[in-house]
Computed example of a mutant assay.
Amino acid sequence: MKSFLVKLLGVFVSFKGYLFNNWLMYFPSHTLRAFLMKRTVKSFGKESSVLMGVEVRAGRNVSIGNNTIINQKVLLDGRGGKLVIGNNVDIAQETNIWTLEHDVHDDYHVSKGADVIIEDYVWIASRVTILPGVTIGRGAVVASNSVVTKNVEPLTIVGGVPAKLIGQRKSNLLYKLNYRPLFR
């Protein structure tokens, strides 16, 4: 009887995640998505927005700061550790942020996880992949289609596979993000 209840609970949890990620996060209302995020993630900041199609895994380990924008079809993975996203962070569409990966050197393909920290005023362009154990420093910029495998220093611009230094950001970072396009 106990194993049946454990399986039933597993089915319920999986179905709840399916409904959240594949139905509710596609509803064209910023207000509803913010309401749902506040109940799914560890913390969800004031004036932050998530566009349609954002996927959250293990939301209890995901924290999102104030005035942060998470665009369409972004994956936020909290399964392998904490995912902390600061204030005024702009994450463009189709970005994948991973806290869990497989160990390529393990004979049994075991999983290993680590925290990902994205500090304030970071700008992550579209289709970026961020791997576990990475900290992206305050005000850094990650160019489109980059793969971030190691820490990024504050106010640097990185790009490529793997991401490498390509420039310095020259900004006092005084802005507050506020982006809520209709039906997105």
Results as ranks from 00 to 15, higher is better:
residue 165 L to D: 05
residue 174 L to R: 00
residue 169 R to T: 14
residue 70 I to A: 04
residue 184 R to Y: 00
residue 120 D to R: 04
residue 106 D to M: 03
residue 124 I to M: 11
residue 159 G to P: 10
residue 46 K to P: 05
residue 71 N to R: 10
residue 66 N to R: 04
residue 119 E to T: 04
residue 13 V to W: 06
residue 106 D to E: 08
residue 166 I to R: 14
residue 48 S to L: 07
residue 105 H to Y: 01
residue 160 G to Q: 14
residue 158 V to F: 05
residue 170 K to G: 00
residue 178 N to A: 00
residue 63 S to Y: 00
residue 88 N to G: 08
residue 122 V to C: 08
residue 81 G to N: 13
residue 90 D to I: 05
residue 110 V to Q: 00
residue 44 F to V: 03
residue 15 F to Y: 02
residue 124 I to H: 13
residue 104 V to C: 02
residue 69 I to Y: 14
residue 58 A to T: 05
residue 131 L to Q: 05
residue 104 V to R: 03
residue 122 V to D: 09
residue 117 I to H: 10
residue 69 I to A: 12
residue 107 D to Y: 06
residue 133 G to Q: 05
residue 112 K to V: 08
residue 112 K to H: 07
residue 149 T to N: 05
residue 55 E to F: 00
residue 98 W to I: 15
residue 27 F to T: 00
residue 46 K to F: 10
residue 97 I to L: 15
residue 24 L to A: 04
residue 9 L to V: 07
residue 175 Y to Q: 11
residue 3 S to N: 06
residue 149 T to E: 15
residue 98 W to Y: 13
residue 42 K to P: 06
residue 166 I to S: 10
residue 87 N to Y: 06
residue 113 G to L: 11
residue 27 F to W: 12
residue 112 K to L: 03
residue 164 K to G: 06
residue 170 K to C: 14
residue 58 A to N: 03
residue 27 F to E: 08
residue 26 Y to N: 09
residue 176 K to E: 10
residue 176 K to T: 06
residue 9 L to K: 08
residue 165 L to A: 01
residue 54 V to N: 01
